[in-house]
Amino acid sequence: MNQLVKHLLWTTAIAPVLLSQSVSAHVIWFEQINPTRGEIFFGHPEEGTPEPFDLNKFTGANAYDISGNVIPSTTTFTNGRLFINTVVPAAAYSGSYDNGFWRENPDGSYDNITAEEAAEIGFENTGQYLKYATGIFNEDFPISRSFGQPLEIRPQSSPFDLTAGDTLPVRVFFNNSLLTNPLVEYQGNEIPVNNGVALIPIGLEGLEVIEASYSDPNANNPTLSYAATFSTLGYGTIVPQPEPIPEPLTILGTLFTLGVLPVLKKNYNK
């Protein structure tokens, strides 16, 4: 296998209606540290530095074996970083994150409001941000399978044998139906979509983050726009971070790890 592409990752996120480009929305994505340990990030992958992860907004993750079956896994939250752990090697992951409702103010700033507050104002100038991620890290995993996420990016050829100058054809699916008009972006540039296929150019540094978005015309109160990202581990925009050194777990830390304690202040990142 060419070392240019070690791992495959798809990340899917719902972006606000008011944003015209998916790169403006925060997303979550997976990277694999080793076959039994992965990490889930939040932020803008193209910026190279993840942002703080709000554990209360994380809604779950699954790990899969090489045949696509769900395998037992646990998640741990250490020093602000979220990890997914398995006993046997994981070939793929999927996960989700609910970033809540955000209202745009006249000055262009945003407030994170509750679902009840959003309903009281009739969802005016308000978008909901539901984020989804899937990642594949083994070349024998069924590449184009569905993970059951609302929006998914699926390659149409193997991403594990790419070299600089190649292109990777990808398609975007909404509720398992092929989209012919999603917005697909790569390194800040819009990629044309022809007959539902976007060709992603591979550079010298390997496969970078791919982003796609789509607004559901049938969704109301609020209207939902979806965004997706696609990246590789070991190359591209994310600088690998050293594993945190485990610290003694206090009662407060235990409650926080289990997601019992609420976040005491609002997350102002959409």
Results as ranks from 00 to 15, higher is better:
49 T>F: 04
237 T>P: 05
268 Y>S: 14
5 V>I: 14
136 I>G: 10
91 A>T: 09
215 S>F: 01
133 A>Q: 00
161 D>W: 10
112 N>T: 05
55 L>W: 09
224 L>M: 08
221 N>I: 14
169 P>M: 01
1 M>T: 08
56 N>M: 12
148 G>T: 04
179 L>M: 07
105 N>L: 09
200 I>Y: 04
133 A>M: 02
114 T>R: 08
70 V>N: 15
24 S>Q: 11
40 I>F: 01
29 W>K: 01
21 Q>E: 09
195 N>L: 03
140 D>S: 12
161 D>R: 14
30 F>W: 11
128 Q>M: 11
263 V>A: 09
270 K>D: 03
125 N>K: 13
76 T>I: 13
140 D>A: 11
19 L>Q: 14
178 L>K: 09
137 F>I: 11
242 P>E: 00
30 F>Y: 09
62 N>F: 15
148 G>C: 06
143 I>E: 00
86 T>C: 13
178 L>N: 03
51 E>F: 11
54 D>S: 10
171 R>W: 06
127 G>R: 04
175 N>M: 14
236 G>C: 00
75 T>D: 02
96 S>T: 07
18 L>C: 06
240 P>N: 01
190 E>T: 00
248 P>W: 05
47 E>G: 05
147 F>R: 00
24 S>R: 14
171 R>T: 11
94 S>P: 14
62 N>H: 13
259 G>W: 09
2 N>A: 12
215 S>G: 08
32 Q>Y: 03
247 E>P: 00
74 T>S: 14
158 S>Y: 03
205 E>R: 12
214 Y>R: 00
81 R>Q: 07
156 Q>F: 10
229 T>W: 14
72 P>K: 10
234 G>T: 12
173 F>Q: 05
122 G>A: 05
123 F>G: 02
134 T>H: 13
201 P>K: 11
184 V>R: 01
66 I>R: 12
195 N>C: 03
72 P>N: 12
79 N>W: 02
97 Y>H: 09
263 V>G: 15
69 N>D: 12
149 Q>T: 13
254 T>F: 11
211 E>P: 00
224 L>Y: 08
